[in-house]
């Protein structure tokens, strides 16, 4: 292959026809509160880790729902498991359990 120094960019569109939603289904199977999120951002705002780095539990879950598994799994490792988000979530999403599930998925789901 000739190296032109550039390559076609991955299309920056969520293609829901090809998106890999396997992790989303798997998490929902183990914890149905995964789908209860109303994207209010309370978790991310209160997050202990989020004070120091760009980390949002809401965004991680959203990425999984759009099939962006790898980046979500990588991001999930920033969580300190402190539990503040669990105490503020208005929909009682079991946030720490979902983080643990995502971490477990790291061993099996990583594309």
């Amino acid at each position: 292959m000739i190296d032109f120094g550039f390559a076609p960019m991955e299309v920056s569109v969520h293609n829901m026809d090809t998106a890999d939603l396997s992790l989303a289904h798997w998490i929902n199977l183990h914890d149905e509160t995964f789908n209860h999120c109303i994207a209010c951002g309370s978790c991310a705002a209160t997050c202990t880790a989020g004070q120091f780095t760009n980390f949002s539990f809401r965004e991680v879950c959203h990425a999984i729902r759009r099939g962006e598994i790898k980046s979500a799994i990588d991001e999930s490792e920033k969580c300190m498991l402190c539990g503040k988000c669990t105490l503020v979530c208005p929909r009682n999403v079991n946030t720490r359990n979902i983080i643990m599930l995502i971490r477990k998925a790291n061993l099996t789901f990583r594309p």
Partner: peptide, 23 residues
């Protein structure tokens, strides 16, 4: 959604949220 508020000097209030539109 507001996650928590704290009080600053002069009884101002510091509020924290996530700007979910810019994450």
């Amino acid at each position: 959604r507001l996650s928590e508020a704290s009080e600053l000097e002069g009884s101002r209030v510091l509020i924290k949220t996530e700007d979910t539109l810019s994450s």
